[in-house]
Design a protein around this nucleic acid. Structure first.
Lengths: 115, 115
DNA sequence: AAATCATATTCCGATACAGGAATACGACAA
DNA sequence: TTGTCGTATTCCTGTATCGGAATATGATTT
């Protein structure tokens, strides 16, 4: 078995930096493909391919407008990632680290009592 | 060029579900490999390989204890993911959606005045 | 109808993954 | 020192990627 498809879920789709950049651009609002091509400085076919992946996991939606296709962000599928990663926040957040330090100190004092 | 290596960053390392499960288990505390093997129900070599990936992106650290190797979580590299995804929270969070609805309503009223 | 613009799809090559099986390694026990 | 336990590494195979280049599709203009 190979690596899971990029279209499997938001985790896999978003592991690619260019796709994150695309979402970042679309966060500012709806845009036609050519705008994204210029802003990213990436060849048009690659942009279309990345957008196709994002569409398959529901991170973007499309709307036809004449000969253009306007893409817009749909952040909902990111909630899965947010929920998972959010539970690890205590690991790196400073105030939690301070709290841990205080607890460790208290524990040491307690151990001293035991001696 | 192929897909970026799983060891490139936390985004890629964590796209694999088993590796997220490993981190979830280690969140409860330090554990030797065999514990993880039993808890996951996955063959030992695969567990060691997943742990190697996590180690390379800094998400776990190891400590030798006799013939065992104790792995522990280090959530810091997840901050990159948290920071990125957190900025999209307004997209799906209900209270923001409610706020957006209110704003849209106000705007409509305003437009009515213009007529 | 022909030309053109905006976008999507296909074909290519190189890369590397994930799981399975087998095996190597290092620490400890007998 | 031989054996055994806990873990890591290697080899294998099928699969899917990403970028580049070329081409196809579909809507619009001339």
């Amino acid at each position: 078995m190979a690596r899971a498809a990029t279209t499997t879920d938001a985790f896999n789709a978003v592991a690619e930096p260019r796709r994150r950049q695309l979402l970042d651009l679309l966060a500012a609002g709806e845009r036609p493909v050519n705008d994204l091509v210029e802003l990213l400085g990436v060849a048009q076919p690659q942009v279309s391919k990345h957008l196709a992946v994002l569409r398959q996991v529901g991170l973007v939606e499309v709307r036809d407008a004449g000969r253009q296709r306007l893409y817009r962000l749909n952040g909902h599928p990111l909630k899965e990632i947010y929920d998972w990663v959010q539970s690890y926040a205590r690991t790196w957040q400073e105030r939690f680290e301070l709290l841990d330090a205080v607890i460790a100190e208290l524990k040491e004092e307690e151990d001293d009592h035991d001696d």
